[in-house]
Write a protein that binds this DNA or RNA. Sequence first.
DNA 1: CTGAAAGCGCTTACAG
DNA 2: CTGAAAGCGCTTACAG
Lengths: 354, 354
Amino acid sequence: MRKKQPTQADVAKLAGVSQSTVSIILNPQGKDHLLISDETRERVQAAIQELSYVINPAARTLAGGQNRLIGVCINGSAFPLDQHGFYHPYLVGIEEACIGHDYDMLLFTRSDGGEGARSIYRNGLNHLRIADGSILLGLENKEELARLMKEEYPFVFIGKREVPEGAISYVAADYYTGTKAVLMKMLGMGHRQTAFFYRLYNDATKDRERGYLAALANRTDPGLLHVKRQLTDKEITPAYCREVLDAGVTAILVEEPVMAHAFIEAARLIGRTSPADFSIVALSDNDLAYLPPAILHELVMLKIPKLAMGAAAVQILDQMIAQRHKPQEPVQITIPVTFSEGSTIGPHFVRREI
Amino acid sequence: MRKKQPTQADVAKLAGVSQSTVSIILNPQGKDHLLISDETRERVQAAIQELSYVINPAARTLAGGQNRLIGVCINGSAFPLDQHGFYHPYLVGIEEACIGHDYDMLLFTRSDGGEGARSIYRNGLNHLRIADGSILLGLENKEELARLMKEEYPFVFIGKREVPEGAISYVAADYYTGTKAVLMKMLGMGHRQTAFFYRLYNDATKDRERGYLAALANRTDPGLLHVKRQLTDKEITPAYCREVLDAGVTAILVEEPVMAHAFIEAARLIGRTSPADFSIVALSDNDLAYLPPAILHELVMLKIPKLAMGAAAVQILDQMIAQRHKPQEPVQITIPVTFSEGSTIGPHFVRREI
DNA sequence: CTGAAAGCGCTTACAG
DNA sequence: CTGAAAGCGCTTACAG
């Protein structure tokens, strides 16, 4: 049987003061704190020592209204067995920022509906509310997001998400500027025929596509060719590769490093290499664990600032929580991206037909 | 303006019942639960949906209920940057078991006192109590453990911990049996002169040492030599290696794989190899990321069942939480270990002096 | 400077 | 079957 813990009332009795005096002494930020005499303070501290009193966090939370809990809802496992967690870098940033802002981190494992796919409204019940605010990673269910929004629960999405019902707060990587910049650079190197291959057409793809198109917008050269299409990994065959290259494409942008890897391998089989025959760049740095080290060093990749994104999400949430009694506008942040050094991009020299 | 969160009172009003009826419905384990009519239950559930009500964990805790929250307090980062987290495999097991037992997982990031070292009683406040029970990993501060114990807060330590104040619940790897078994095997292979090198003398070392001594206990052969000492990584030099081997030691047990690696390297420099000249085994599989792949495959290592240990901790805690109103005995579990296949152990043939 | 009191949102006897 | 009420241990106006 668990004994009852000493309470502020016990401390107060021992020190010969009222319970509220104990509370005031224990909350130095309160405005009454300065008014307590040193002599009283010492008597109370002594009583606290004497009883080894510790404050009851649940009671404090209940009386004060906050949990100092930030929820994290991932569409998958936070601790995957293979350690190459897609979400890991975000979580690193989140954990660090939680420490910095004095929050505990609540992983919503209960929202697991099996197969690792997670849902906010399991049992039709938003139990995110247990946390003062939550960070959402990779949830695809836009209906749930819309519903969360309507409930005015403070949450921040990591990655861009647009729902028809209105603006939600998010922290995204600036794929638009990144993609535009790298393509501009390639155009500046003499490339004229370009291709953009994506895997799934999602909100991030949309931004990359906008960047891609923006870089091309001012080009009026005749004879330009711009391929843009969805491509599954299996479709990246030597034959398709030959088709693309023979059509004259020399600058290739793919969304994922593994796509770039597949492309480079396929090209090698038909005797084409990068950057001699074509330049290629990956517009993310996901799933690097699946690439051979050689490719890892060669490939030019867009580096997603995952740590910074995680940390920014906590910061935004912290502000939302602090101002939770005032009207709130959604906060949407895009963080600049950089590119890794690599050798898969080079100048294009027009071959002269003889 | 964010609205106040809906409470049971709001739900009750909407459903036209009393607040306590809502509470009873929300706590199916209570004895009154069966007495509520289906019709009432449905009306209340509908109201809950309608308002997106979710229970306030602080209030529930304060009033004596449960949160379905399992706390995890690690002495370090749960999401370290390099992804080779020492704690990662435990966390995998904990997360899985939390899903299985329907708990959310609360990472106590607030207990970080800087430098990643974490403390339960930061500000003299045990805020673990917001969780129904907690799992502790790697905390070295035995005073804090003793204090936690006195408070009768349900917690389980991962790894063996003994404090003078009494028994605490833990889940440990069975180093004793593992060490004893592997040494028995080596003795069976003809080894007579053995050495046991450890790094820090902690509770796990103590168990390994007991296993080591137990295996030797029945040996009465004359001329036995048993070295046992603490060894820092830097002390593992070719010179020391020569000293040990020339003294006649042929069976070496080291606590950490990196120690084994250092030993093998040092031995190679003086022309001795394993298993021809000596047999060596590591009594853990920690920090494998720092070993070259070749060693990884050769070295015989004790495999710590980290996933199983994490999962077992959750299970124990779940039972402690369920029985929290009854007197509790500490639960101490040791989980059997296995050894990896490897080639660093072999038979010893006595060399005949000519 | 200090205390009495309301209230945070629940659970759980207790009474009907 | 359901409700009124006490109480969990705090914080925070409010009153002296």
